[in-house]
Write a protein that binds this DNA or RNA. Structure first.
Lengths: 192, 192
DNA sequence: TAATTATTCAACATGTTGTAAAAAAGTTCA
DNA sequence: TGAACTTTTTTACAACATGTTGAATAATTA
């Protein structure tokens, strides 16, 4: 997706890794994870099977690395949304940026978040959202409604990620902006 | 979990299937799904590997069948909660019965819902909750807040299942009754 | 161009999968 | 109880997947 590399890297490495990643995303659209082998990935990526092992320990390891990259991308996006705004609309903007990013890489996210095949990615995003909400409600949480704070955080973060997943599964029927607004409304009234 | 069988079944079949299921749950507590082989399941279940194939096509098939059984159990529970109540507190009672059932089979649910290893189960429960909420809001939905009904349903059902998962992961720090109350409150104010 | 690094090729041991046929063990029911 | 039936075990097999090796070829760098 993004680069993440400052030091000059051998273009063969970049090319090979990209081919492998594309191949995996490709295969995940077609079959369950347990049908995907290093062999198939190598074939699809038009590389030698041994080359795969020069870059990743196994498929699991590869997915963890991809999830890590995704998490870094998303954290960057959310950080810069927080930075550039000083009005009170930070979380609405954060959501909007996040959804735009997801929509912009729809093919990737539809596979890794929208299918049941790769829980690592969903897990990772849930963690990011949970942390964001936890931070956000650090001071503003009002215990008025007798709701436990941790329950409210569980509730809100799962709601966000679940809605994003459903949105992806339904091929993003709303614009990122509109969905961000909807989510902000739901999020404000409940779970806070 | 429950029986589901009216016709008399050879006790060897029941015994073997139970051994296999227990073995899988056992192994899922210890390792990722991709490390679990039919061999390991058979060893742990103290049955012959070939016997596994007399009952299930493969591990995937086995998990689908287990998820189906879980779904039937849960649907029974929710149906009887709906039946026995005529006051307006149906959904609170439904939630409470559901959470009690989950708590009562904590070891099982902690593994199949609380880990990232078996998305089929989470998926299945999400579907049940989504349908329940859809039915529940069929007439009572008020479009007052400019929130799309489908978005509200995505939001609410994901919130419910996500909270249950988090509750399991944290070893159920609240009683089913208390959590049901909390969820009902959160659910009432948001997502409707 | 020379040195370095990445990729390919061929090969290997080890383990998994799914299936088969026949023997052994357990269950049912007259 | 004993005979008929069903399930489980045993042994065996072919196909495929895994992870690693050492040596060759190819691409990049400087």
């Amino acid at each position: 997706m993004t680069d993440h590399e400052n030091t000059r890297v051998d273009p063969r490495i970049l090319r090979t890794r990209q081919l492998i990643k594309d191949a995996l995303i490709d295969l995940l659209q077609e079959m369950e994870l347990n049908k995907i082998t290093v062999n198939r990935i190598a074939e699809r990526a038009t590389i030698n099977r041994v080359t795969f092992y020069l870059h990743y320990r196994d498929i699991q390891d590869m997915m963890e690395k991809m999830a890590q990259e995704m998490a870094e991308d998303i954290e960057d996006i959310m950080r810069s949304a927080t930075d550039k705004e000083s009005t009170g609309e930070t979380d609405s903007l954060m959501l909007e940026s996040l959804l735009e990013h997801i929509a912009g890489n729809g093919k990737f996210y539809k596979v890794v978040l929208g299918t049941r095949r790769t829980p690592i990615f969903t897990e990772r995003l849930l963690k990011i959202l949970t942390e964001a909400i936890t931070k956000r409600t650090e001071k503003s949480f009002r215990a008025s409604s007798d709701v436990q704070r941790d329950v409210a955080i569980w509730y809100g973060s799962s709601a966000l990620i679940g809605t994003i997943v459903a949105w992806l599964r339904n091929d993003m029927p709303y614009t990122p902006q509109y969905l961000a607004k909807q989510l902000t409304m739901l999020f404000r009234i409940g779970g806070k």
